[in-house]
């Protein structure tokens, strides 16, 4: 096996490509049947990168991606950035504990952490623009939890194919 090349550039490209795909998926109009269950792709992908490369993907990266999402969805600035920064931060803090868990156990943590992220952003949108939290708002957590194992394997595969180590 060739030596692992954990260069910043490779990580940058792999990360950007996956985030780009997540952004496209998140604005794709989902089918009516799973409309409410469409996962928060960006949060999921960020969760993965914050878990596997905690030294590189920190709160500032989360904030940056959140700001891009706010531009994409034409929402007020700052909220999504704060939510994603918090998500990345909590995952960074807990990454050693989370890595020990199997993918199936991680599902629960994903639901919990992304739930906190959604609660936080929903609450802040409520403060800013009169958004009210509803049960449907949290249905997407189910989608997140269901798609986590697949996403995890997929991104793990991506990381292996570009020979990216754990940083």
């Amino acid at each position: 096996m060739s030596p692992r090349r954990s260069s910043g550039l490779t990580l940058f490209w792999a990360f950007s490509a996956s985030i780009f795909a997540a952004l496209v998926l998140s604005i794709l109009p989902p089918p009516q049947l799973i409309f409410y269950f469409w996962p928060d792709w960006v949060a999921l992908v960020l969760f993965y990168w914050a878990l596997t490369t905690p030294r590189r993907i920190g709160p500032w990266v989360g904030f940056l991606i959140g700001t891009l999402m706010e531009v994409l969805f034409v929402r007020s600035f700052g909220v999504m950035g704060f939510g994603l920064a918090t998500l990345v931060f909590t995952v960074n803090r807990a990454h050693l504990q989370l890595r020990v868990l199997s993918v199936w156990q991680q599902i629960i943590v994903v639901g919990l952490f992304i739930g906190i992220f959604k609660l936080l952003t929903g609450w802040l949108y409520g403060l800013i623009s009169g958004f009210t939290l509803s049960a449907e708002y949290f249905y997407s957590l189910v989608g997140c939890m269901v798609s986590w194992p697949f996403l995890f394997i997929l991104l793990q595969e991506l990381r292996r194919s570009v020979r990216l180590g754990t940083t």
Partner: peptide, 12 residues
Amino acid sequence: FGLVAFFCVALM
């Protein structure tokens, strides 16, 4: 993280 949070609140 504190810096990011402060920045976000300022942005909002």
